[in-house]
Design a protein around this nucleic acid. Structure first.
Lengths: 244, 244
DNA sequence: CGGCGATTTGATAATGGTCAAGTGCCGTGG
DNA sequence: CCACGGCACTTGACCATTATCAAATCGCCG
């Protein structure tokens, strides 16, 4: 696993790690578990003593509201650390669930804290990762608060595609799409019925194809336009050492 | 200023600083400026080489969208560091503006980076602060995406009041409220007209009084209920060393 | 006193929600 | 191999929250 360690892969997209750093990451204690689809990894109110790294599968971040609804606030792909925040915030204010079956590695907080003190450069990268996540939250707020249904949905699809790409998932014009219409509704702040009609509209306009849990882009330029999508907020290419 | 340094005050709400740490904070190079109301401190697309500390006044975080709208994503009170994220993300994906006249201190990124390497405990607190901010973003997403207008507005008022309190602003049942109805609309993802009607409803129910840029709570319990407000996400009392 | 932005009000329109029923797909088990 | 069951998806009719537009009033500052 240390050969294709997805954590290292993600960091190396941003900086050149030296041998010591690579070793230190590879030697972090990692308790690996297989989790089925549709399970909670952690729940609102938990006080975890470890953080988890997603090794395989798709997970998502959500909050339930008293009146029965749910808002999905983000999703995670292999290499992401969904509950890194719990390292500094004792009580979790969100739940994290699996969309598909996942392989997950747990790292004790003590190990992470010690690691951050001895490797401040990587600590900064972890911090950075939480800041990118916050930037995505902000964009979602704009999306939900200020864009109409169709734009909102198209924007989400653009983000999904872009992030799958940057994680090396999918091939050609297609990416995996394990998300149901009900989940899309909880992402966009709409209802499943309305999502269904919006998806039909995107298909009618020949922007996408969505079948068999696979999303195919027919017209990327027009899809971006329909979603007012500008990927700056994903901060994919502005790593401090990337020279770009 | 080092006597009542608002940065130190905010940290001391979370941990007990030692003399070295207090000195290090007080000696950070701080270029203080006075900014009028309704000005941008930084803009989307900027690549700042410094971060700013709000010393007096109220600032807010926003994004404009191509079709003319605006989403407000957060606000800042004295002691907050609005663009701390720019320390690790080169390109700003948001703008920060002033709601009222502000006194602001600028700290060069180099100084902050060096400071974080020599004071990892405080670096962790700064990191923590950005995580609390992200938690607030998440709650706003739920608010905008899954609550109706009245609940949304009441929730925001509850958060405003709670945060003013924790920053030592206001007295009795009143807090300063320099926010216009148009700004409330851009916070809640609604229109100014609708905000006006919702405020009337909150007044009719005798939950609040809002006049002369002052917000008075008439019935805190019912306001919290109307806003489905649970302050956990503000992480006010779960500092890692607070023992709570 | 005049002016301008913020607030308030009314009438009408539209986006998206709700409810209810039906279809299609896929895995399980007889 | 086929029947059944469950879940996701689809469709239609109707409803409601919120937007839009337009105009009037308030309140503060010069």
């Amino acid at each position: 696993m240390s050969i294709t360690n997805p954590i290292i892969a993600r960091f190396e997209a941003l900086v050149v790690l030296d041998e010591t750093e690579r070793d230190a990451i590879a030697n972090l204690p990692l308790h690996v578990m297989q989790i089925r689809a549709d399970q909670d990894l952690v729940r609102e109110g938990d006080r975890p003593s470890r953080s988890c790294v997603l090794l395989e599968g798709v997970a998502y971040l959500y909050k339930s509201i008293p009146t029965g609804g749910r808002q999905i606030m983000g999703f995670y792909l292999p290499g992401d650390i969904p509950d890194l925040q719990s390292l500094h915030l004792r009580v979790l204010d969100v739940s994290i669930g699996t969309i598909s079956a996942c392989r997950v590695g747990f790292i004790p907080h003590e190990a992470l804290t010690a690691f951050c003190e001895t490797h401040p450069r990587i600590a900064a990268l972890l911090w950075r990762q939480t800041l990118v996540e916050a930037a995505i939250f902000r964009e979602w707020m704009v999306n939900i608060g200020r864009r109409d249904g169709l734009t909102r949905l198209a924007h989400f699809l653009c983000e999904w595609i872009t992030r799958c790409r940057s994680h090396g998932l999918g091939e050609g014009d297609s990416v995996p799409f394990p998300i149901t219409q009900g989940e899309l509704a909880d992402i966009a702040g709409l209802t499943p019925v309305h999502i269904n009609r919006l998806l039909q509209e995107l298909r009618r306009r020949e922007l996408i194809l969505l079948k068999n849990a696979t999303l195919t882009v027919l017209n990327w330029e027009k899809l971006k336009e329909a979603g007012q999508f500008n990927p700056t907020y994903l901060h994919l290419t502005d790593g401090k050492h990337s020279g770009i």
